[in-house]
Write a protein that binds this DNA or RNA. Structure first.
Lengths: 139, 139
DNA sequence: ATTGACCTTAAAGTTAACTTTAAGCTTATA
DNA sequence: TATAAGCTTAAAGTTAACTTTAAGGTCAAT
């Protein structure tokens, strides 16, 4: 299989596959006498693993140690994998907290804005300052 | 007030304040005869607004139209502000959905991993492929 | 007078995950 | 045979929000 076919089967663009190879995520494939890369079905699996890890939010650097050359050479041990999963889980939870807070603040802001608007008071660019007072009472 | 004092009062580094100025987020301040930037308390307010908008997750580009030179020149209208808020709210909600899904998938993955581990089966790097099968049954 | 803190500018560096460009082979099709 | 599609490389470009660097001028205190 050449790179174009692999791209078609995985939905990952050919130049992205080369980029992954350059980052060590994908083992260097054999070359035909023309210099073209030659892949087997196994490469589809490797790329699928990368896609999965990406969907879970892992960075390519994480993925490098999860499914890259190193990982394949050493064999992937459960402890290390678990560590990565827990680390990512904590990241996700922090992000969820931050975003949940943001959502609440934006809604609160909208509410204040509507009140001001109905009162006909035109604060122009000061609404954000206003919110700052609501949220951060030191001002 | 010179830039260092403004930096101290807002907690924003002096070079970041200059950077904001270069992006048009902050109006160009007057200069002393030595060329130093001279700020008034109003600048503290502007920077506070920027900080608030950032805490809500707005990009500097958004902030530019919210509190930047243009916004101040035109006067900020409620419709436009509301539009920005709603757009950001939708973004936040999409992110929350994505992250909630990721969290569930990672937990599911951990569960599977523990099961495999207790069974003593050593799948090495294939766990991610395994997860892929669980989640994306076309393989 | 000199040391150190503070100020100035413009430009380059940082990180992530690609994408684009340039310049040139190879292969398949009409 | 010609042309279009596909392959090769290396290097530069992209976006965001800064940070760092370089090279230097100014100010306060000892």
């Amino acid at each position: 299989m050449r790179i174009g076919e692999l791209a078609k089967q995985t939905g990952i663009a050919a130049h992205t596959i080369r980029f992954y190879e350059s980052k060590g995520l994908l083992p260097k494939p054999k070359r035909g006498m023309n210099g073209y890369r030659t892949y087997s079905d196994e490469s589809v699996q490797v790329l699928s693993r990368i896609q999965t890890a990406q969907r879970l939010g892992f960075s390519l650097e994480d993925i490098h140690s999860l499914v890259g050359e190193k990982a394949n050479a050493n064999g992937l041990d459960h402890e290390k994998l678990l560590g990565h999963l827990d680390a990512r889980l904590e990241e996700v939870e922090q992000l969820l907290n931050r975003l949940t807070l943001q959502k609440a603040e934006i809604k609160e802001f909208k509410k204040q804005l509507e009140i001001n608007w109905q009162q006909g008071s035109c604060m122009q660019a000061d609404e954000l300052t206003q919110l700052n007072k609501d949220v951060n009472p030191k001002h």
